[in-house]
Every structure is written in structure tokens, then in C-alpha cells.
Design a protein around this nucleic acid. Structure first.
Lengths: 355, 355
DNA sequence: TAAATTTGCGTGTACGTTAACGCATTATAG
DNA sequence: CTATAATGCGTTAACGTACACGCAAATTTA
């Protein structure tokens, strides 16, 4: 049997009809307070739960969730990896009557973000998975509850998230960027002997989660009493030329080897720049398993790549949303995922491989 | 609408009754070959899929899957980690009408394995998740198809698995142990300078997947032209005394530091043994995030821990089984999971953390 | 005070599937 | 050649829920 106790049992025990029970369960009114409480108490006693299968069969409608994140090709393809995880999770959820609608925005355009938020709001999905990469507009939208009350954030958290109360689901899933930075520091210290210089390409530009990585890196070196790495402040870019220019003007005398830490998915740009500038013995630690980075990792040009498991992270976000909304289960307020260390040996391209 | 096309549509298009279509779909016979093919072709044309909700509502029964693996406390608690993953997946599956039955055996007792296999067979579950840690009995049972045809293996593969054909589902999910060993070699070579000795505790005892790790390790050192590590052949044990005795007789002159690679979850035993024997400057690389190993990792006694993500691996096995059996989706014949590198920074105890 | 509305509740149908049942028609056995 | 079984197919009753509908009684409005 699926569920020992049915709505019929509840009706019988409460001495009412199933219609009344149904009205109580769905809060559709037309029931006296007295009856309502009686029914409710019997539901609690018996542990009755609506049979998901019967319910969904009758309703005949599918659940629609919305996904709000940057376009897949942005950030060197980082969001493509997230998308992969979501698509895979979507496959699981589809036979459960769940559909996903994607709302992709240009993360560098305030206008497009606003427009996409608008569209998502109009779509009126049952819940949303959201990567609030820039705090402002998303915070406002969340505060207005324009996207409803069922929301799971991933990748980036919204500052003082807990201030916005009163949401049914409102959970964050993502990495501990400070830890990730420290870990990068540890790996770098193993790769590069203390007499060689270590450069940190600081691309944070006020972006909180990138700057946490940089902080963590420096902190590791400080804690271990290693010589302070040199900070190269740059602007986040997708242009190899700009990366090259930045390194050229910042790194002098790269003859005896050096360490290079890049705290985001554009690692491949700076490693390629090093090659073009004929720097020797560069040991690079970077972030995110986007294609270009993986290629350089396999070729040995990048020593280690840290990864916040973009695919896993995104798929967990979606799966948690459905756990909470669709299956009415409790989900944690926050999930901090561990950071992966990728080396040439364990970098199977998309997290798994089959044949 | 849930599914545009229903069994009624198929019936109408094929010019038969829904009973006939149902008999075709469920392969219950009593249909002429001609009609069967006609119905089948229309099903393919329209892309008809049985509505899971209606089907499950009518059947009213839950799906039962069996899990066959060693007792959780064995292998230093490695199987507990797998269990955690399965339990978490079970939570997802339960509202979908799925129940899990556990068949846990003593991996060192042939008798208990046979008995447990017997019990599992009698339980006649819809499908099984199976960790065939010793080839013999499991291979036989699979060949006999005693557990039915819906089986997903994890952790260990069965030799010449593909010889046993004709299974509906018959998939393996696990790590590439050779790669994992190579990765351990890379990390060790970073930790220990070439003039210091590196010891490999070879606990394989003919166990294929452990010996692959050892092979991978040696291969890395060979490939990089590093001095050959020294092999200590031991017997897999849970006793600290035995571990200590082994190291005491095998390692001489441990004054100037050394590297230690242990290819399984008992890493903590050998690291503790080193401490008890007052070896200095031991850099240890081991396997599996069991509690004792994690403690030593955080304390800095173990430098890196490799992990085949036992929880993730097991939960993927179960979820794939259900994808294939319950949702009739295709799953890959084999999934090779990447190996995680755990350091003090990224070793959040059970793979995730919440607060 | 009659009419209109609201409240409180029961009844009934349909969602798509499953599987038992029944009834012809054909094949096999005695 | 009749009796029995097997085949091929249609019919139908649930499974548990959602929701429209209907109908009294109570309440409000005119």
C-alpha cells in the first residue's frame, strides 16, 4: 500500500465527508472553525499525507521551476557547467512531473538583469533557483518577494540574507571561498619553494566571493610564515591581450620560476599569457574546470585547479528546491560544499565519464 | 497536462482497446503478433510513456530495492559512509513510493555472504544495489540471475562483467583506482623531496582494486624518473599493534623523514603507528574519509586523503537504479567517478555541512 | 419580511492506468 | 466429433484525490 491512511479514513474518523477534509487540507475555506480543527487534529494523529500520485494524477498539471543565472558562456563557460548539472537533474525530475524554465541574463548588464527578473516574475513559477551574482537587483527582488516564497540560491549568497524573513524556502548552497583560497595557498606552497616569488592575480573588483579567495590565499602564507605573495590587481576580463598586458607590466625578472594564483575561471588566460611572455617554470593554481582550464591542466601548464563543483552545486540547488516544495521535506538553511582539487589525474571532464 | 498522449489515444490510433495496449506495454501476452507490432509502432511514433502517477496510483504498491554491501563498521567505517549516501538518497526516493531494504554482510565470512545473498534473493526486490567486494560468490549469483535483472554495482566491479549478458540493467559505478594511485604518487612527490625514502604499504593481498592503486602509485614515480618507492607488503588489518609491528620491522633509519602511502581506509593505523614509533617528518597520503582518517588529516598528521566519494558513489548507484527501473530512463553502462583530494581545508566531514 | 448572499457541508465525476473478468474464436485432446 | 484448453480481444471497476456543483441553513441586505 502506498499510504496506509487516505482522505477517506480522515473523513470517516472526523465524521465529515471527504470534500470537507479536502477543503481543510487545501485551505479553501467553507468549513467551520470547529470542524477544521477536528479534521486537522485527526490528520496530525494519523500522520496522513496526501498521496502524491493520486493528487498529481487528478490535477494533471506539471510543476514549473525557474532557473535564474548568467548566460552559459559567461565567465569562461563556468555557467555552462552549472547548466549541465541542472539539465541532468531535470532529467530526474521530468518523470516526476517537473519542468524547468531557464531565465538567463547577461551578468554585466543591469538592464538585462532587470528585464530577466521581470520575465521570471511574470512566468510565476512554483519556485526558483537563483544565482544572485550581483547583490543589488536580486536583493531588492527577493525583498519584494516578487518571485514568490520558494527560492534556493546557489553559487553566490546575498548579503544579510537572513534579514529577509518569512520565506517558505530560502536556502543557500555554495562553496566556502575563504577555505578555497587557503587551500590554493597550501597547494602553491607545495609547488613553489619559498625563495621563488608567488603572484596573486587579484580580480575581485569588489566582488565579495572572489576577494574571499584572495584573502584566504594570503592568510595561508601568513599563517605558515612564508614570504608574502605579490598582489597584481587587475580587472576581470575575457581578453588574452589584457591579461598579457597586465602580467607584462607587473612581473619583472621571471627568470628563476614563479607561482601564479588566479582566483577565478579565467585562469587559462593568465597561464597562456605566461607562455606567450616566455616565463619559465610557472606553477599555476587556478579555479573552475572550464574547458580551456582543463586543457591546460592536462597539458601540465596548470598544476592544480580548484573547483566548487559547479554542476553538483547547481543540481543540488534544484533538487533541494523540489525536495522542499514538491515533497514537502525540510532542507537545510545553508549547505557549504567542499572544494575539489583537480589534477591531471582526476579531471574527467564533466565530473563523470562513461563508456 | 501531464502527458499529451495517453493509452486511450494509442488504443484509438491502433484501432484496438486500451486493454490490448496495456497487454502489449506490460508484455502480458494474449495479443496477436500483428496487433502487437502495430501498437508498438504507434507507441514509438507518438512517444507515448505511461503516466507514472496514474500507474502507481492504480498499482498501489511501493517499489522495493535491496542494498547488498558489507556491514557499515567494516573497513574502518568506510561502508558507513556509503550507507550515509544511500540513506540520503532514500529520503528523496521515499515520497516517490520507493523503499530500501538493506542486506549487510560480514565481508570476511564466506558463509555470511552466502546467507545474505540467500536472504536478498528471497526478498525478491525490484532491483538491487550491490557492492561485490569479493568476486566469487557475487559473480555466481549474478550469473544465475538470482537477484533478477535489475542490478547496479558500485565500489568494486565484477571481473569480466560484460560476459554476463542479457540483464535489463547492469551498470557499474566506481572509481578509477589506477588513476587514484597515480594521483597519490603526484601528491607524494610534491610532499617529499627525492632524497627521502617513500614507503608504500601494499595491503592488496590479491584484492584487485587495491593493487591497482599501488600500481598507479609506482607508475607515477617511474614515469617521472623519481627513485623507486619501497614496498612494504602487509596483511589488511584493523589492529594498530599489527600495523606497528609491520612498520617497525620494515622501516629502518627513519631519522631524516619519509613518505608513507597507504592505499585503503586503514591509513590512520599506519600513521598512528609512525607516531608511536617516533618516526619524524612523516608525510602521509592515504585513502577514504573515515572518521579516524579525517581526525588525523585535520591534525596535520595526514597530508592528503584521497576519496572515491563513498557517499556520492553509493547514492548515485541507487538513484541510477531507480532512474532505470522506476523511470525507465537509460543509464550508462559504467560511470567512473573522479577521485577527491582532501586536505585540512576542504574536508568538511560528510561532504557537506549546514547550519 | 422577503430576497439575496454567504456559510457549511455532502455528492459525484474524472484523471490514466491496471488487471481481473468475460466472451468469442481457434487449437488441441480424448 | 465433442470436450477442454488456449488465444485474442473488449469491458469495467477500482486506486486516492481535486474540484465543480448542489442544497440546505444561517446571515445579510433591501
Amino acid at each position: 500500500m502506498m499510504n496506509r491512511v487516505t482522505i477517506k479514513d480522515i473523513a470517516r474518523l472526523a465524521g465529515v465527508s471527504i470534500g470537507t477534509v479536502d477543503r481543510v487540507v487545501h485551505k479553501r475555506g467553507r468549513v467551520s472553525e470547529e470542524t477544521r480543527l477536528k479534521v486537522l487534529s485527526i490528520i496530525r494523529e494519523t500522520g496522513y499525507q496526501t498521496d502524491m500520485f493520486a493528487s498529481r494524477l487528478k490535477k494533471g498539471s506539471r510543476i514549473r521551476y525557474g532557473v535564474l543565472m548568467p548566460r552559459p558562456e559567461q565567465d569562461s563557460g563556468y555557467w555552462k557547467l552549472c547548466m549541465d548539472g541542472l539539465v541532468s537533474c531535470e532529467k530526474d525530475l521530468h518523470p516526476q512531473g517537473v519542468d524547468i524554465e531557464y531565465f538567463l541574463f547577461d551578468r554585466f548588464s543591469e538592464g538585462d538583469i532587470a528585464l530577466t527578473l521581470q520575465k521570471a516574475e511574470e512566468a510565476a513559477c512554483a519556485g526558483y533557483v537563483l544565482a544572485p551574482v550581483v547583490p543589488g537587483p536580486f536583493r531588492d527582488t527577493l525583498a519584494r518577494q516578487a518571485l514568490g516564497r520558494n527560492i534556493v540560491l546557489f553559487d553566490t549568497d546575498v548579503p544579510d540574507r537572513r534579514v529577509v524573513q518569512d520565506l517558505d524556502i530560502y536556502s543557500f548552497i555554495g562553496p566556502d571561498n575563504y577555505m578555497a583560497g587557503s587551500l590554493a595557498g597550501r597547494l602553491m606552497s607545495l609547488l613553489v619553494s619559498p625563495e621563488k616569488p608567488v603572484y596573486v592575480v587579484d580580480l575581485s573588483e569588489g566582488e565579495h566571493h572572489i576577494s574571499r579567495r584572495v584573502e584566504g590565499f594570503f592568510e595561508y602564507y601568513r599563517k605558515k610564515n612564508l614570504p608574502e605573495p605579490r598582489r597584481i590587481v587587475g580587472k576581470d576580463t575575457d581578453s588574452l591581450k589584457e591579461a598579457e598586458a597586465l602580467l607584462k607590466e607587473s612581473i619583472r625578472g621571471a627568470g628563476r620560476g614563479l607561482g601564479l594564483f588566479v582566483p577565478n575561471a579565467t585562469t587559462h588566460l593568465y597561464v597562456s599569457a605566461c607562455r606567450n611572455l616566455h616565463f619559465k617554470d610557472v606553477e599555476a593554481v587556478g579555479f573552475d574546470p572550464v574547458d580551456e582550464n582543463l586543457r591546460l591542466l592536462k597539458e601540465g601548464e596548470i598544476a592544480f585547479l580548484l573547483s566548487q563543483r559547479p554542476d553538483y552545486q547547481a543540481s543540488q540547488a534544484l533538487s533541494n528546491l523540489h525536495r522542499a516544495y514538491g515533497a514537502k521535506q525540510d532542507i537545510p538553511d545553508q549547505v557549504i560544499l567542499p572544494v575539489d582539487i583537480l589534477s591531471p589525474e582526476n579531471c574527467l571532464s564533466s565530473g563523470e565519464e562513461s563508456f
